[in-house]
Design a protein around this nucleic acid. Structure first.
Lengths: 127, 127
DNA sequence: TCAAAAAGTAAATCCAGGCTAACTTTTGGA
DNA sequence: TCCAAAAGTTAGCCTGGATTTACTTTTTGA
């Protein structure tokens, strides 16, 4: 298993989300979504390539490898669980829930995430 | 108001906790608690001094300024709320709750923290 | 079709926050 | 009292992740 920084996890997640909408994900698309410069994206992609998590030919589009996609889906799944918990249980606003989920998704333990999932199940039955 | 990194918030929090137990907090004490080297602590303390959050004479002990103590208490307070929520509501183990609280305390929004506090109040009444 | 715009990259720089090695100052016990 | 151990500092290094400037490659539309 890889250790990925929060930053690299974010890149994978964004690529995954962009893939779901439009195909042909490029450096510029990612830069826009994350609000950072294009060279920063190029550099991060290089690092992901070294870890075999994305494939990109020079000047070409970016695609996730199976392994990269697996990680991206896992991060995004955590994101959705957290967002649901924040909005439905804690009644946090959509905007803030989105922001907080984006940060917590990278640092939360497996145990706590599972605790939240379990709570959500019971909560839906009761509430 | 200051913007402090997660790392600097941690230093303030540790100094505050050490102050509550033994007086005379030194570089070595902090290094031991955080598991990092003494020079790293010296460097961080310098930064906190520049922000007027701690006072330390050369080769001397470290004390929080009123402003530093205010921030430290605020961080530690968030920590305690999160830990309580994780252990009492989500039934997370003490160890994991401690680890997760230590990370989440630096990134959580005011709105979400207040949401948790509110939830804890109601939860105590019901449970 | 070909030139300008858009997309992508390279190089050099900055900062935070770790580290080790080597130094200085303080302290405490024989 | 005085010197060795403990505490603290300095200097130099490394990495991740961002930046800007200036470059190359690709695309596109008049």
């Amino acid at each position: 298993m890889y250790y990925l920084t929060a930053s690299l996890e974010d890149y994978l997640e964004v690529i995954h989300i962009l893939h779901q909408n439009a195909k042909n994900v490029g450096v510029t698309d990612i830069a826009k979504v994350l609000g950072i410069s294009k060279p920063s994206v190029t550099r991060a992609i290089k690092s992901l390539k070294n870890n075999s998590l994305v494939i990109q030919e020079k000047y070409g589009k970016i695609v996730l490898t199976p392994e990269g996609d697996k990680i991206a889906k896992s991060v995004y799944s955590r994101h959705k669980v957290l967002r649901k918990f924040l909005t439905e249980v804690l009644k946090i606003s959509e905007d803030t829930a989105e922001i907080d989920a984006c940060k917590i998704e990278h640092i939360i333990s497996k145990e706590t995430l599972e605790g939240i999932e379990k709570f959500l199940k019971n909560y839906r039955i009761e509430g």
